[in-house]
Amino acid sequence: MWQHPDMITFHTLSDDHPDLAHSPMLRAALLTLQYTREHRAIGLTKTMAFKRVFVHWAVEHFDWPGRSAEEMFRYNKVINEYEFPPLELLHFLLIRLRLARHFKGEFRLTKRGADLAEAPGRLLSELVPFFVLEIDHAAYSRFEEAPFGKWDVWMNVINVEADHGTTEKALFGAFYGDGPDWDNAGWREMAAFSSCVLRPLEWAGLLVLTDDDLAGKKVDHVFKTPLWRSLLKLDTDAQLQPISVQ
């Protein structure tokens, strides 16, 4: 069990826990660590980015939400690391958490990284809390603007508001009021909230975001995944209503 100073508790899950499958970040990390171990290393460019041969492999295998290989290769036959933001971020995380290192122009595993390549539950405990709570998500967002707020407030409110599903607009309104929307002057505030709060939780595997067309208007729905329920312990858990089974 891991607890953040903001009183967000992350349980440690067993390596065979079925809910681990909901995390794109964990899946990508496992694939990268296992690929590195099998090939001994991954080649780096002069700027210390992954070489294109691995970038293309990652695009094809990560199965990243909203970034299918078919879609990405439709417009670009050659893809660099910076053009696949999830990989660029994962590269940083693996180095920052000392699961890998750069050595003589190659990306290589540390002993700890090699150990965690076969321990999904422990790897998730290392990766997800740090990624969600410690990374400056505004730094890699489109406008580099961060919404006002703290993770303990965001996650405790989302825990209740999205328990049976909600919309992105309704969730934003619970924190900041109902005025801003994607089709008015408040769209930048919506974008900052989406990029710095909802997207990290989606990439971690704690939320699912869906685009739906209702009466000709695009509506973004937000749902908690089973991983949210099994991984997190939050102050607002006592306010949740049981999910009815039809």
Rank of each mutant, 00 (worst) to 15 (best):
E88W: 07
T45L: 05
A117G: 12
E70N: 10
E71W: 07
R37D: 15
V78E: 15
L133C: 11
H17L: 07
H137K: 12
A28S: 09
M25Y: 04
R98I: 04
E118K: 07
K111I: 11
E118D: 15
L123F: 04
R96C: 08
S125T: 13
R74K: 14
L30R: 02
P65N: 07
H137I: 09
L127N: 01
E106K: 15
H39L: 13
Y140D: 03
L87Y: 06
E70W: 03
T47V: 04
A58P: 04
A114G: 09
R96W: 03
L26Q: 02
K111C: 05
F54G: 04
P120I: 04
R96P: 00
E38T: 12
E134K: 10
N80M: 13
F84H: 06
G121W: 04
S141N: 02
E134S: 12
V59C: 02
Q34W: 01
E126G: 00
T36I: 04
M72C: 01
S23Y: 11
L133R: 11
N76A: 10
L90M: 03
W64H: 03
F107E: 07
H39T: 13
F103L: 15
D136G: 02
I95E: 11
T45N: 11
R98L: 12
T110D: 08
F131A: 13
F130E: 15
G113F: 06
D19C: 12
M48Y: 13
F143Q: 13
K104G: 05
A138I: 10
R108I: 15
T36N: 03
L90E: 01
E38C: 08
W57N: 14
A119W: 03
L94K: 07
S125V: 01
R74D: 14
S23T: 10
R122A: 14
N76G: 00
R112G: 13
H17Y: 05
A69S: 15
V128Y: 00
K46I: 02
Y140K: 02
P86T: 09
F50A: 07
F107C: 02
V132M: 02
G105L: 07
A29V: 10
L31D: 08
L109T: 00
E71H: 12
V59D: 03
Y35P: 00
F143T: 09
A138L: 12
P65S: 05
L26W: 02
F143P: 00
R98Q: 15
H137G: 09
A117V: 05
Y82M: 14
R101Y: 02
S23K: 10
R122T: 06
G121A: 06
D136Y: 01
L116M: 06
A21G: 09
A119G: 00
E83R: 12
A69G: 09
S141W: 00
R101K: 13
K104D: 14
P86C: 08
M25L: 15
R122L: 13
G43K: 10
A49S: 12
F73N: 14
F107H: 02
A100L: 08
Y82R: 15
A49W: 08
V132Q: 00
E106F: 04
P85R: 01
F107M: 08
F50C: 08
V78K: 15
N80A: 14
K77A: 15
L127G: 01
T45R: 11
A100H: 03
A21W: 06
F54E: 06
G105S: 04
H61W: 05
R52V: 10
V59N: 01
F103A: 14
F50E: 10
